[in-house]
Amino acid sequence: MKYRIFLSAFFLILAPTLSHAEYRVFLLKITKKSADPQNPSQDFRLVESTLDHIQYHYYYPVGADEEVTYIDTWRCYGRTGDFQTLCPNPKGQIPQGENAAP
């Protein structure tokens, strides 16, 4: 009986503190489709989101003349609640002029 109480207390109190959350950030490019295929449009915007290029259409308004393209993705650790900002892209953290390899 005591074993069952101890096991229940472990799962209710200690297990949530040991778990770690993570999420994925996607860099999306939203481009206006051009009516002329010979002269493609250069009008675009970059968006960082936790939704991929397929899911983004269902949650945010995207015009019929706009196309959402997947550019990059990276993993972040922690929670996304309480409107916290998304973690930055770690690939952009390395200075271009320095060589990280010895």
Rank of each mutant, 00 (worst) to 15 (best):
F83V: 06
F44C: 08
Q55S: 04
T69W: 04
L12T: 10
E22V: 07
V47L: 09
Q55E: 06
R4W: 05
T17D: 07
N89K: 13
R45S: 09
P102N: 01
A101S: 11
E98M: 13
L28H: 06
Q84K: 15
D36P: 07
C76Q: 02
Q38Y: 12
S41M: 07
D72F: 04
F83S: 13
D43I: 10
C87K: 01
D82M: 12
P16S: 05
I94L: 12
H20P: 11
K33P: 02
I13K: 04
A101C: 15
L46G: 09
A64T: 14
Y3C: 10
E67Q: 08
L51C: 08
L7S: 11
T17C: 13
T85C: 05
V47K: 05
S41T: 15
Y60F: 14
V47E: 15
K32H: 11
T69I: 01
T69A: 10
A21V: 10
H57P: 14
E22W: 15
W74I: 13
L7Y: 09
K32L: 15
S49W: 08
I54M: 09
N89S: 11
S19N: 09
G92I: 00
V47S: 01
L27E: 11
Y23A: 05
R45M: 09
L28D: 01
K32M: 14
K2T: 08
P90N: 07
D43W: 04
N39S: 12
V25Q: 01
